[in-house]
Amino acid sequence: MLAEQDAFEAERNARMVKAVYVYEAPLRLWHWVNALAITVLAITGYFIGKPLPSLSGDPSEQYLMGWIRFLHFAAAYVFAIGFIGRIYWAIVGNHHARQIFLLPILNRHWWSEVFYELKWYLFMVKEPKKYVGHNPLAQLMMFLFFTVGAVYMIITGFALYGEGLGVGSWADQMFGWAIAVLGGNSMQMHSMHRLGMWVTLCFVLVHVYAAIREDIMSRQSLISTMISGWRMFKD
């Protein structure tokens, strides 16, 4: 459904300018702020679980762990508020902005396109299809690993944050239930949150690789699209 619309849009535009305006400015800004937030979160998060080598000297003069945790929490707020903003943009933005939130799972054609893309990545077909937004496989992966993953990390993360803020704090009241769901021992929650970081790392690896590869192989712009907003078709 979306793919057809995309194809139509691409065809119509390709005849004229060979470029389509896909990602609007707020979405592009969010993408890069979000990427930065994830980077900070992953690095600081890693060192919260496994701290840097011990410092000596008077503790009143140092605040290393405090700063690492502060950066983590600050980036977490940026990530979470950005995510809320992104949901807002999915509502008011163009139809590409909705892609990673709504999957046309009842659409047979969409699923066949997912498998076509899968074949393309497995070298089983020679020519890729062109899409203005995400290709269906990318859309599925973005939904599963980014959208679901972000919700998971926000819930588990703020549940842990609520432990520090204390019982009765907003984070405890809004997300504290998640710890109880996992049995009440937040040690489990720490492990699950950390596992989420590794899943995110795997997602980033695939995401960056696929973007670079498609940029070259599909003969359409991907990386520059997230900067300029325009998708260029090379043939």
């Binding site: 410092l55 140092q62 605040y63 762990m65 405090g66």
Partner: peptide, 9 residues
């Protein structure tokens, strides 16, 4: 305070 300072055994 040692935790916040990054001082660990």
């Amino acid at each position: 305070p040692h935790f916040d300072a990054g001082q660990f055994a």
